[in-house]
Design a protein around this nucleic acid. Structure first.
Length: 492
RNA sequence: GCUCCCAUCGUCUAGUGGUCUAGGACACCGCCCUCUCACGGCGGAGACAGGGGUUCGACUCCCCUUGGGAGUACCA
């Protein structure tokens, strides 16, 4: 067997969807495992919907996930160009070959005529397929149509006898009755090839050995195989992976929430977690392991272990896994990841001082095991950096307005202002003393302070919070809280 | 309609005729740890879609039904 060459061929009509990302991943894993080549090809033959921005976003997404391609945009390669829009003359050449060999012919049917034909077929409950009315046009008829200015497409003359077998690496042997096939269009009236034609020419010319793609392409495969054979190309190995579904079991789409890689990136998902989760969606190694580093996936991946059934995208599990990877991060890595965003939010200045850096890292350390997404930090870290507190109403009511809170806060305020060094070691005794003095549970002492200083009843350990927020700000916030309580008591 | 694919806990899955009173992970519930939350630990509930075969024996093989998904374009 020759070298393994696989490809990912997205059409730039939007963001990179997680389904596409998983297809890219499986191709990538196989290429790396077998020292093969991973080709990225842009299928931009849909002039209406393809955009430049979309290409950029897709490349960005691939890079974010760490799925480096060996040939393709920005990389070059000896089988280029890697944009289908730049390969039009190539498709034309092979289309002409098919015409010459009698395997393709011009069709002058208008969309309206075709539509009427299908309507009629529907009424008669026949199969919906092109009836081949232009298959045997005489030269005179052809000239007449051209004289009338009618546009034509090129249709492939499909073989209707026998069967076409796809030996799919995931699905197994799949047999199609050729009787099902009709003479499908390979070149549109504007001269652009259709997907089923271009994909064959490109995969053949780019010497793709394994076509790994979504199951939505399985039904198209017999058409493509016929083209391979008509052109005397080697037929590659096929592997069709199951679709990704939403919670309602319909195809995963925007309707189900985030589906694009960039969106996940912006919400604070880590590439490592995305890769790990996507790999497990439709593939498994054994009954024990769920956490896989990329290299491990490369070593252990195999198409044979890819599941045949569609998988529901479980955002909860992805979130859990993201938490796992966040916890594994070195604090410096985590800092680097959040820095740009924190600068945007003005948590940190453009050029943070060493002191600011260290403080930020301490804050991250206290929050690291409490977050699932990097974006969780927006809410759980802001009170370390911003003066204005966003009070959680429920917490205020439950904790601050609880009987005794005012006295506890008043006592603690005095002590906190008086203590020499504002450190964890010095803070702890103060709270213990308060506990004895008021004869309350430690929690009853801590919670009012927590809400006063953070605005909520959920935060890292209170000594950490106080130390990180600092004496001045902590005490000021406690005063503010006391004012709130007094005001509330007057109201009632 | 026609063609193709698929079918184990709510979800992702392990399981390739006896090892299954079906294993793991997420989610869920309870307990423990504890200043809240999280982390961690322990425990619980929870599945072989249905019906026929084949076989000494079916989650595992075959058929049918049902249910889901895909394709059937001058989209990819």
């Amino acid at each position: 067997m020759g070298q393994v060459r696989v490809r990912f061929a997205p059409s730039p009509t939007g963001h990179l969807h997680v389904g596409g990302a998983r297809t890219a991943l499986f191709n990538y894993l196989l290429a790396r495992q077998l020292q093969g080549v991973f080709v990225l090809r842009i299928e931009d033959t849909d002039m209406e919907r393809s955009t430049e921005e979309s290409v950029t976003v897709i490349l960005e997404s691939m890079e974010f996930l760490g799925l480096e391609w060996d040939e393709g945009p920005g990389k070059g390669g000896e089988f280029g160009p890697y944009f289908q829009s730049q390969r039009l003359d190539i498709y034309r050449k092979y289309a002409d070959m098919l015409v010459k060999s009698g395997r393709a012919y011009e069709c002058f049917c208008t969309p309206k005529e075709l539509d009427e034909m299908r309507q009629a077929q529907k009424q008669r409950k026949e199969d919906l397929k092109y009836d081949g009315r232009c298959r045997h046009l005489t030269e005179e008829q052809r000239q007449e149509f051209i004289k009338q200015g009618k546009k034509s497409v090129l249709r492939f003359k499909a073989e209707n006898e026998g069967v076409t077998v796809v030996n799919d690496l995931i699905k197994g042997k799949v047999t199609f009755d050729n009787h099902q096939l009709d003479d499908f269009v390979i070149i549109k009236s504007d001269g652009i090839p259709t997907y089923n034609f271009a994909v064959v020419i490109d995969d053949a010319l780019m010497q793709i050995s394994h076509v790994i793609r979504g199951e939505d392409h399985l039904s198209n495969t017999p058409k493509q195989i016929q083209i391979y054979k008509a052109l005397d190309f080697n037929v590659p190995r096929f592997a069709h992976m199951p679709m990704i579904l939403g919670p309602d079991k319909s195809l995963l789409s925007k309707r189900h929430g985030a589906t694009s890689v960039t969106q996940f990136r912006d919400e604070g998902y880590l590439p490592s977690a995305m890769i790990n989760y996507l790999a497990l969606l439709g593939w498994s190694y054994d009954d024990a392991q769920t956490i896989f580093a990329k290299q491990e996936l490369i070593d252990k991946f195999s198409l044979e272990k890819v599941s045949k059934n569609p998988a529901v995208f479980d955002i909860k599990k992805l979130q859990w896994m993201n938490g796992v990877y966040i916890r594994e991060l070195e604090i410096d890595e985590l800092y680097q990841m959040v820095l740009p965003h924190w600068q945007e939010l003005e948590f940190l200045p453009k050029n943070p001082s060493n002191e600011q850096k260290e403080r930020a890292k301490s804050i991250l350390k206290s929050l690291q095991e409490r977050i699932k997404l990097l974006s969780d930090l927006d809410d759980s870290a802001y009170y370390f950096f911003q003066d204005e507190l966003r009070y959680n109403e429920k917490a205020v009511r439950k904790v601050l307005y609880k009987e005794g809170s005012l006295e506890i806060l008043g006592y603690l305020l005095t002590e906190l202002l008086a203590v020499k060094e504002f450190t964890q070691e010095n803070l702890e005794p103060i709270f213990k003393q308060a506990q004895n003095k008021f004869e309350r549970k430690l929690g009853d002492i801590m919670q009012p302070v927590r809400v006063a200083v953070t605005g909520t009843n959920v935060s890292p350990g209170i000594y950490d919070v106080l130390g990180l927020v600092g004496r001045a700000k902590s005490c000021q916030r406690i005063k503010n809280a006391m004012e709130m309580i007094k005001f509330h008591q007057k109201e009632v």
